[in-house]
Design a binder for these strands. Structure first.
Length: 166
DNA sequence: GCCAACGTTGGC
DNA sequence: GCCAACGTTGGC
């Protein structure tokens, strides 16, 4: 199982919206960037973990977790002329954009703000820091354990991680 | 396939 | 809402 980080604008779709969705599941549609698309289509698997990051809020932060519950399939909004995600270059035979379904897992009791992320040298190589515009990011196992230790200390099995503020 | 122009992202 | 950084487009 791998861990990813998905960015979303909470004014558009938030982790609370996912929690309140039917069956707590939604299609993660609207990705219109080729590298993010490639990761969705080719790398992400059912059962992978997803950290949810809220961008463009008053407090940009990693706010919780979801779970990938489908394989990649064509994003239906690309075929709908009335939808902002419409792409005239897409066809049913050759879809350009893909999505997966995610299910709500938990909201962190202590969300990790971008500001805090930048204060830990351990997080200097997070894609959130070095490639902030990519909407589907890789998280290593160690990075995940460090994030969990900060966001959900009661759930973390690795209390011995030597995280220290500079 | 270069690269200028243009569009989008997202922290602030 | 500003604007710097970055991704995409398309003429050549």
């Amino acid at each position: 199982m791998r861990t990813w980080l998905f960015k979303t604008e909470p004014r558009h779709f938030s982790l609370d919206d996912l929690r309140d969705a039917p069956d707590q599941i939604t299609g993660w549609d609207g990705v219109r960037n080729y590298q993010a698309r490639n990761r969705l289509r080719d790398e992400i698997q059912e059962g992978d973990r997803v950290l949810i990051y809220h961008s463009r809020g008053k407090r940009p932060a990693i706010v919780g977790e979801a779970l990938v519950v489908s394989r990649a399939y064509p994003d239906p909004t690309q075929f709908n002329p009335d939808h902002e995600g419409f792409d005239a270059r897409s066809s049913a035979n050759q879809p350009r954009w893909y999505q997966i379904d995610v299910r709500y897992v938990r909201s962190y009791t202590r969300p990790l703000t971008l500001n805090e992320v930048r204060q830990y040298p351990e997080f200097a190589d997070l894609e959130l820091v070095i490639r902030p515009r990519l909407s589907v990011q890789n998280i290593t196992d160690r990075q995940y354990q460090q994030i969990l230790a900060l966001c959900e200390p009661d759930l973390s099995v690795s209390g011995s991680l030597d995280l220290a503020l500079p």
